[in-house]
Amino acid sequence: MFGKKKPTPQIDKDQLELIENAQKRIKQKKRLYVHFVVFLIGAIFLIVANTVLGIGENVTFFGKEWFLYAILLWLFFFLYHLFNVFITHKFMGKAWEKQQLEKLVSKQKQRIEELKSSFVKEEKIIAKSEVYNESKNETKKSKLTIIVAAAENNAIGKGNQLIWHLSDDLKRFKNLTNEHHIIMGRKTFESFPKPLPNRTHVVITRQANYKVPDGVIVVNSLEDAIDASKNDSQPFIIGGGEIYKQALTIVDKIELTRVHESFEADTFFPSIDTSIWKETANTFHAKDDNHAFEFSFITYQKK
């Protein structure tokens, strides 16, 4: 009750603007009315001063008394004031400003829509070029190849060692894999006395902090190994048995040395499904002084 302030009425911003405009309009009309009254009194004064008091009675311009020109000049300023209050105010007042603003906003919106449409066209062109580039990249992606020597019963090794020694097979392995990435499991890598020259070794292992010589890449999965070899046009997967099994469904080609004999082994190559794989090359080698077994170089391409 006591000490409480009466709430002050809140006036809407638009209402306040209307009130201010109305007050300015009233002041304009008051000034015009004052100007009119002063003009009438001033005109009468000039006439009386000349005709009754004789002020400047001998001053004429073009045969007319000077006060007539003074009254006409003053009338001009009054008419200009009248025009400004009732005419100019209408087409340059708040309504006119609002109309001009709406026109400008409309033009800006139209310009923005034009820019948007041009951006959409550019985005479509960019998107098409990106799709084209992606398709080009797809054609340029690495072609994975398995290279393996397997017996008739698919045996490939025993005790982490090769079961046979075929000179021409080793030469073929060297020629095909030279200057390429070779992907292998840890045990296969450890079967080498040292890393093979002119090749980038990618070793797959789950062991943490697995120590390898400089230049050897260590990864934790076949996917990571493929990613590490993506800049190579044809990385080779060289073993062992589990890596071959994982890779068989994703590789593009198999370079197989088929040893025409069966052996006891602890590591085997998966069977090749001929409904998926097509034989594209087959070269037979007979036994000789350097080769204890018959073998064939066979190339398979995925259908």
Rank of each mutant, 00 (worst) to 15 (best):
I163G: 00
I217Q: 12
R206F: 11
P270W: 07
I47A: 12
P270S: 07
N154V: 01
A265N: 04
V59P: 06
P197C: 00
P213F: 10
N153Q: 00
T274I: 09
Y80T: 09
F268M: 01
Y80I: 13
N84V: 09
K30H: 13
V85E: 11
Q234P: 01
F236K: 09
K121G: 02
Q100Y: 09
F263K: 03
V251M: 03
R25Q: 14
F263N: 02
K4V: 10
Q28F: 12
F189T: 05
S262C: 05
G159V: 00
V251R: 02
N58R: 12
S271R: 07
L16P: 00
I254K: 03
L68T: 12
L32F: 15
H81M: 14
E102P: 03
K174S: 12
F77G: 10
I298M: 08
E97W: 14
L222A: 08
A208W: 11
F39R: 05
L18Q: 15
E242N: 14
K64N: 13
S275K: 13
K253L: 06
F86Q: 14
T257H: 04
A281K: 14
P197V: 04
D252M: 10
T267C: 07
T139I: 08
K4T: 07
S142P: 06
G63W: 15
E130P: 00
K140W: 06
I254C: 02
A95P: 11
M184C: 03
